[in-house]
Amino acid sequence: MRIIPYVLYLLLIAFDRTILTDLVAIGPAHIYTAALLLLLVAQHKSYTAALWFGIAAGVVFAAPDPSRMGIQMFVLGFLGAAMAQLKVRFNLDSLRSRFLLLVGGLVLYSIPHTLFFTTAGSGSIVFAFIRVALPSIAYSAFVGWLFFMIQTGHLSFTRIKTLF
């Protein structure tokens, strides 16, 4: 039964790849759903769980394009392992530390993602990073942070209501 949440996360990745990604995209900025879910697992679960979930996420993420499955497995597995290692060096009770971990994880994901999956020349890699990756990091960080704030109770309907 402990595997069910991971299966649901993987289904969410497939849902994002199929329907959600274009619906929630703002111009070139997409939400890095796979990376966000991996960060969630890495923050709350063990190193091995994060590592193997990263591998599984890579397999599911790359299923529509099997030629890149190995790289996706490596990138997401590496991200899961790195985040699981890094989280012990951060004070996760601090909002700032959590935010740094979130943004760091998204940057760590987007760099190889841009490097490996930008098919044109090296000039376009820089362009793709500025034009696509940076807005996507910002957008994903905002969504991830919003989720975290709601999850921890820092943001709730009652709190929002008190503002008005």
């Binding site: 591998i55 890579g58 397999v59 790359a62 299923a63 529509p64 099997p66 030629s67 499955m69 190995g70 790289i71 497995m73 490596f74 597995g77």
Partner: peptide, 17 residues
């Protein structure tokens, strides 16, 4: 595992996909 998938290309990742 990642390396195997990377090296084998679509030979292995195709059926898995």
């Amino acid at each position: 595992l990642s390396l195997i998938f990377f090296i084998s290309g679509e030979g292995l990742s195709g059926p898995v996909a």
